[in-house]
Simulated assay, not measured.
Amino acid sequence: MKSLPMTNGFSFERFKWVTYRLLVINKKEYAFGIGGTLIGLYAFWILMGVFGSQQTLQENSTIVLAFGTVIYQIGGYVLTASIFSELQSPGSAAQFLTLPAKTGEKLFSGWVISYVLYTLVAFLGLSLLILVMSLTGNLLFDGEFQNLYDLTKIYLNNVVLVYLVFNSIFLLGAAYFKGKNFLKTAFSIFLFFVFMGILMIILSNIISNFAGPVMFSWSVYPFASFESSGIFKKLFLQLLYVLPLTLLFLTFSYFRLKNRQVA
């Protein structure tokens, strides 16, 4: 068996084998989840084409892709929350903790699987679904060949950045909680937004007593609210606080995972 290099710094070789191990362990769940979702979306599109005579094929495809992006995010959060599931079981925790890899390599492996690889596979699958729907519509429903570019923009617009931030939050939940990680992380996010909403109301009332009525405008997805004529300028403005937030939660995840390594 090939031995892994024992270096003090980050080892790409160790990272590669940890990533490969996680993918092999969960390959059936990932394959069934992504494959079943795409087949289900395609079947839903077929049913709308047969029975939904009030809508065009383009509208049906838009609805299906909207569902697809929602499933992409929810499914990704479930996957992310369970990425360190071995730590939750006394029978498997020792196997994960004694892996010949550093904490940063394990965390980076989990992030690459739950964000980079998952996003690439999901969007390639959705793009393939667009092509199949377009060909099917042309052959079975006598529809025109659909504009792939317009349909692709549906799930590329802001979705990747939203998932980037919340993926890091659920990755922290995967390392922090011990059991029911997805539900506990989702509930924590809900409580945070409730707290922020109450805080905004209190601040608004306090300030209005001194300076008159004040209207607060606050969005759950502030990085999706910029308006700019330039696509790259808008993307740059969004990244200004998407990346710091992501790095912050990844840093918290690293220290939490490191603490559990020595616990």
Rank of each mutant, 00 (worst) to 15 (best):
L107T: 11
K153L: 15
T98E: 01
T119P: 04
M48P: 02
V70Y: 01
N138E: 07
S127Q: 07
F44T: 01
S85R: 10
T69I: 00
F141I: 04
L107D: 10
W111D: 03
Q146H: 13
G52K: 05
L120V: 15
L161W: 14
S82R: 15
T56E: 03
L117H: 06
S109M: 07
L161A: 10
L139N: 08
M133Y: 05
G49Y: 00
G40K: 11
I154S: 11
Q55P: 00
L97N: 09
F166T: 13
V162N: 14
A122E: 06
A43T: 11
N157I: 07
V132S: 04
V50A: 05
F84V: 07
E86Q: 12
V121I: 15
L124W: 06
A93V: 08
Y155D: 08
L131P: 01
L172K: 11
W111P: 03
G125Y: 12
N60C: 02
N157L: 13
L172T: 15
F51G: 03
F96D: 06
F84W: 03
L171P: 14
I130L: 03
T69F: 02
N147S: 13
G75S: 08
I113L: 15
L140N: 04
G91P: 04
S127K: 04
Q58H: 13
L151P: 12
L120S: 11
A122N: 13
E59C: 05
F166I: 12
L120M: 14
T62L: 07
Q88Y: 06
S61F: 00
G125E: 11
T62D: 00
Y163D: 07
V50L: 13
Q95T: 12
G143K: 14
T80R: 06
L57D: 01
I71W: 00
D142V: 01
G91F: 06
V121S: 09
T80M: 05
V112I: 15
L57K: 05
L99T: 13
D142W: 01
I169P: 10
L156E: 07
Q88G: 10
D142S: 12
V121K: 14
F145P: 06
T56Q: 07
I83D: 03
L172D: 11
V64I: 13
V70W: 00
F170C: 12
S109K: 09
I63G: 02
A43P: 04
L172Y: 15
A81Y: 03
E59Y: 13
V132N: 02
W45T: 01
P90N: 04
N158M: 10
E86K: 14
L120E: 05
L79G: 05
W45M: 02
L148Q: 12
L126R: 06
V112C: 14
L156H: 13
N138K: 13
L65P: 02
G137P: 04
L171D: 09
